[in-house]
Computed example of a mutant assay.
Amino acid sequence: MATLKSQREQIRDQRAFIAEQTDVLQLQRDELSASAEKRTREQAQAVRLNPQEDVRARWQARGIERVAEVRNESGAAVHDVNVLLGNHAAGGVAVRSFTGRWGPLQPPPVSRLGPFEVAAFCFFKALGDTAPHAFFTDDAERRWHVSAEGLLRPAHPGDGFPEPP
């Protein structure tokens, strides 16, 4: 009888220990999840949209009337970067690498904008006072929208911009 009582106590103690470990593991999972979310948001917040008020001569010579730059000031690449003026897509985009060299004008979107690179989205029509807005995908494959005012929010299908290919 003493053996049976001892076994029951041991089983009860093991169950209590397992319950404590389960709680600890859940807390660790929650901490890791919060940390990952914080890193994701910090990366997204380091992507800036800068509407250019004065179109520089290098762009005007190509017939470009309006430019909006996306600066990736994060330490990781972002993907599927694009800018719209209202619902109008840019006519082309050039990327300046971290070395300071501009690449050729290409059709948007930018598939990969590396750390500390800049993408200049070029519009051949000024389209009035329409404010630009940018969309991009971060390392965690979350799609983001940033306004000209710097307001960042998760992007959703139907935000006025097609999802990346």
Rank of each mutant, 00 (worst) to 15 (best):
E20F: 06
V24P: 09
L25S: 08
L25C: 01
L25G: 00
L25D: 09
Q28P: 15
Q28N: 00
R29P: 10
R29G: 13
L32K: 03
A34V: 02
A36K: 15
K38S: 00
K38A: 07
R39A: 08
R39V: 09
R41M: 14
R41Y: 10
E42P: 06
Q43S: 04
A44E: 07
Q45H: 07
A46W: 08
A46K: 05
A46Y: 00
V47I: 12
N50R: 03
P51W: 01
P51R: 01
Q52R: 13
Q52V: 09
D54H: 09
V55I: 04
V55N: 03
R56Y: 12
R58G: 14
R58I: 06
A61F: 02
A61D: 10
A61S: 12
G63A: 13
G63P: 08
I64W: 01
I64A: 11
E65Q: 11
V67P: 07
A68D: 03
E69T: 12
N72E: 03
E73Y: 02
S74D: 00
G75N: 06
A76M: 13
A76V: 12
A76D: 13
V78G: 04
D80T: 06
D80F: 02
D80G: 03
N82G: 05
N82F: 06
L84D: 01
L84C: 09
L85T: 04
G86A: 05
N87M: 11
N87G: 11
H88S: 07
A89F: 00
A90H: 11
A94P: 03
A94H: 08
V95L: 07
S97G: 15
S97N: 13
F98I: 15
T99I: 13
R101I: 12
R101P: 06
G103D: 10
P104A: 14
L105I: 07
L105V: 14
L105A: 14
P108G: 05
V110Y: 00
S111Y: 06
L113S: 04
A119G: 05
F124E: 15
A126D: 10
L127P: 02
D129G: 14
P132C: 06
P132R: 02
A134S: 08
A134V: 01
F135S: 14
D139N: 11
A140H: 08
A140P: 01
E141D: 08
E141M: 11
R143K: 10
H145V: 05
H145L: 11
S147E: 00
S147Q: 13
G150S: 07
D159H: 01
E163F: 11
E163A: 06
